[in-house]
Structure formats: C-alpha cells, structure tokens
Design a protein around this nucleic acid. Structure first.
Length: 277
DNA sequence: GCCCAGGGATGCG
DNA sequence: CGCATCCATGGG
C-alpha cells in the first residue's frame, strides 16, 4: 500500500485494500460519524478526520502514529483476502468488503463498548457510548474523550440506566467497580487463553463479547465472534439449525485458523449489509 | 402490538 | 454439563 506520512497527515494512495466506509460500518467501532466523503473517528481521547475521493484517503490527526496503527496500515490485506477468497463461504464476502481493515482499538474502550453491545442494536450502542463520553469523558477541544476507568467508577447504576444500558446497567456497574488499571495492563501481556478466561469472569462478558474485545482491542486474530446474525447465516450455509454458539464458534475457528478474525468481519459485513439470511 | 438487536446470567434437570 | 427463560429499550 502506497502511504505518505506527514507530521499531522496520513495519505493513502492505493485504495484496493482500504475503504473507510466499509471499515467503519462493519460493526467493529461505535464512535464515528460519516458525512458524504468524510468521516470523524474517535478512540480514547484521540480523534482523526478522514476524507477520500477516487484515488486517495487523507487522515488528518494530531496522533499520526496512533491512527497508523489503529487502521492497521502496516498489514498486507491482499494476501489475507487471497487466502480467504478460496473459501466458498467467503468468496463473495471478501470481494464485497474488499476494503475492510480490522481496527486496533483500545482494550478498555472495547471492553466497555462490547458489554453494551450484548443483545442490542448498533444505533442504540452508539447512543449509549456517546452519552457516557459526554457525561463522564474529558472535554478535548471540540469533542469528548472516552471515559477513563476512574471516571466510570463514579457512575451509579442509575447513571448507566440513563445512558440506556437497560438490564446491562448492573453488569456494567459491577465490572467497572471491580476492574483495576492493572487488570487492563496485565490483559495485554497474557496469552489468548488467559485473556479469555479473565474477560468472561467479568459481569456482562460472555464468549461472544470476550472474542470481540480480543479481536478489536487486543489484536487476537484466531477468534470468531458469533452473534445472532452469524448464527442465522451459518445455519443456512451449512443446512443446520443449531443455536449452540459455542459449537459454531469452535467450528469456524478451526475452519479459518489465524485468519478467523478477518474472516468474521468479511462474513458479518457482507451478509448483514445485504440482509442475506 | 410484535419482533429484533454484534448475548449473558441464572436456574433447573 | 445442556437447555430454557428472562432480561431493558428503542426502532422497524
């Protein structure tokens, strides 16, 4: 990928492996807005402005290094896509979502965000997170940062209900109260098995949510989060009718190995975007 | 009014 | 273990 790095800009000239709308709309990130051919993306206390046309993407930000890693710009997606396109379930999906990149987001932000995501829809998830940011996040020159753990520890169950978390409010309160900064740092140095075990010990975190946190917040790629949509599509593709997500997850991870996380995103984006059940 | 949303916790056998 | 049921809430 041809990339030009400047002090406050990243310019990408080869768009065959990067489409901003696909990357933002594939369900891996909740703090962004798209407006025509431009977008604003937030992560922690950082922000990037993106704009694009037919032959380049321009990312403008004070945190060039952070967003270079955030958009996974060092990785060769053409070889990943080449591998996955051999799979009959993914051939069309990879072609359709050719410009998806897996975002490297912050582990704590993903933990909080995906607890909210459980049995919820993306519009509501975005609203709740936005509320938490404006209510508990630091103001940073035109926008609000994602709340720190200390800031969220000041939130009551009622505050989380006001944020629209519904029955997840108690789970969120419990997890936020128990969690420490050390927990989050330790998480980054654990192997995947230990990460999973720790994450599912938190209230509001089950197998699917843990896998999302690992994929989008910890860079673990041999996970395949299975939500209701993937459950449905899986049943149709394999002519089965199971609700056993543990079984589906195990089967798909064994099918796609270390490319599972990528496979899952092409899968999710293609079938959901086209409402193919 | 009904169904669904990037599911998880709980209880029961 | 596996399985069923319940859980807030807003949008379609």
């Amino acid at each position: 990928m041809k990339i030009d790095l400047q002090f406050n800009k990243i310019i990408i000239y080869d768009l065959s492996d990067f489409n901003v709308e696909q990357t933002l709309n594939c369900g891996q990130i909740f703090r962004y807005t798209i407006n025509g051919n431009s977008a604003v993306v937030n992560s922690l206390n950082k922000q990037a402005h993106l704009s694009w046309d037919d032959d380049k993407i321009v990312i403008t930000t004070k945190d060039v290094n952070y967003f270079y890693n955030f958009f996974d710009l060092d990785r060769d997606y053409s070889s990943i896509k080449h591998q996955l396109a051999k799979d009959k379930f993914l051939k069309k999906a990879v072609n359709y979502g050719y410009g998806i990149r897996i975002i490297n987001n912050d582990a704590f932000e993903m933990l909080i965000s995906f607890i909210i995501s459980a049995n919820n829809n993306i519009a509501r998830i975005k609203k709740s997170i936005e509320y938490l940011c404006t209510r508990f996040g630091n103001y940073c020159d035109g926008y609000y940062a994602f709340p720190t753990l200390d800031a969220l520890k000041l939130a009551s169950v009622q505050d989380f209900r006001t944020a629209g978390l519904g029955y997840r409010a108690e789970q969120m309160f419990d997890t936020v109260q128990k969690l420490t900064y050390n927990d989050i740092e330790n998480l980054k140095n654990m192997d995947a098995g230990a990460q999973f075990k720790f994450l599912v010990s938190l209230k509001g975190v089950g197998e699917k949510v843990a896998n999302c946190i690992m994929l989008f917040g910890l860079g673990v790629k041999n996970v395949f989060p299975v939500d209701t949509w993937i459950n449905k599509v899986y049943n149709n593709l394999t002519h089965t009718n199971t609700k056993d997500r543990k079984k589906i997850t195990a089967e798909l991870v064994s099918r796609y190995g270390n490319l599972s996380g990528y496979a899952q995103q092409y899968f999710f984006y293609y079938y959901r975007d086209n409402k193919i059940k």
